[in-house]
Nucleic acid binder design. Structure first.
Lengths: 198, 198
DNA sequence: TAGTTCATGTGACGTTGTCATATGAAGACC
DNA sequence: GGTCTTCATATGACAACGTCACATGAACTA
């Protein structure tokens, strides 16, 4: 019925899924190899047949998250009826969304663990390329688009990160993360400077 | 010679200093209560006489870092010969600097641990107020200054965070963190829009 | 059918955070 | 000065953790 390689691949998938679920439910402290194994229906030592250590299991979770975002960006890029500005807005909204609904997974994605495995790093790189492509649809000039894309990406990350850490209280800054990003998008869209910063 | 309260206070200081040193030298994994105690010249259980648990010891480290930045911003604010624009630039440079020279301490400062103790949260709040005050010297309109300050703070944090996690490679984005922030400052300075974003 | 491979289960080890308890010196009171 | 109290620190112990060495048994191969 099930070949050995199929079964092993299924176990690997279940391990990654179990780790992701535990991360969402209980945060990083809840992700123990024993708990992951139990939820995946295997023992505590089983992960070592698929990953060299815990860090690489977490890297696989990060890779899965990045791949999910990448697929979403692919769908946005494939929809040619979508105005470029709205495409960018939806891409940013997707990032904000995962940052708010899955804060622990988000922290993992933007943490050093994403560079622990080659697969995860590739998933990150792919998503960055897609995001730059989406920004290029709005900005035009390639060099300017890259810099604007970088500024958008870092700003979105800064907003989500400070929100999740409780450092972006509206009562202090008189602004929500969404307002900040809308402002930044407006600034970038209205920018008519030359682009040389000597 | 040394009263009991003096000795206890000195031990507490040494524990926080030892934790900060270990954090800088070996990252979060290097900060074990045993190692902290050993470096501070006490035993592994001594921290429990000063902090309810490890998280609060780390919060004390974060508080110390924030207080250090706050003192630096105070010096900038006290120097009335300083042009407001340069004052802001130095404030931002100070944040970038600690983010790059002490990446683990920086991550702790902007992590959830900073909200674990009331003292740490107060140090964060003080620094945010000072930063907003510095931004107000450049922007003028109070509401606009707050929003610009928030955008600057989140963007700086996003840049440093992605740099430290290895997600801001210059070869991909064609931009360094400094260039991104200079661009953002330029955009904010050149902004002449109304301020309503309906 | 016999032999090989390999995913998985299990026992064990060192390390960690944390607590209960013991100790011993500093401060308070007569 | 002697006695009692207080409290910072030291020590032993425990459960949980990541990790490894080894055992097991079923899936492949010949």
């Amino acid at each position: 019925m099930v070949s050995r390689t199929e079964s092993a691949a299924a176990t690997r998938r279940e391990l990654v899924a179990a780790a992701a679920e535990l991360l969402d439910e209980s945060g990083p402290e809840g992700v123990t190899l024993r708990a992951v194994g139990a939820r995946a229906g295997v023992s505590r030592g089983a992960p070592y047949g698929h990953f060299p250590d815990k860090e690489h299991l977490l890297a696989a979770v990060a890779e899965q998250c990045w791949t999910g975002i990448g697929d979403e960006l692919d769908r946005l890029l494939a929809d040619h009826d979508l105005p470029p500005a709205e495409r960018l807005e939806r891409a940013l909204a997707g990032l904000l969304d995962i940052g708010r609904r899955r804060p622990h997974a988000y922290a993992l994605m933007f943490g050093p663990a994403s560079n622990a495995s080659a697969g995860a790093a590739a998933a990150v790189s792919r998503t960055h390329d897609q995001f730059l492509s989406i920004v290029s649809g709005v900005i035009g000039d390639p060099a300017r688009a890259r810099q604007s894309g970088a500024l958008l990406m870092t700003s979105v990350h800064g907003v989500v990160s400070m929100e999740n850490a409780g450092h972006l209280g509206v009562e202090k800054w008189h602004a929500t993360g969404d307002q900040l990003l809308r402002r930044l998008i407006g600034l970038l869209a209205a920018d008519r400077s030359t682009g040389d910063d000597a």
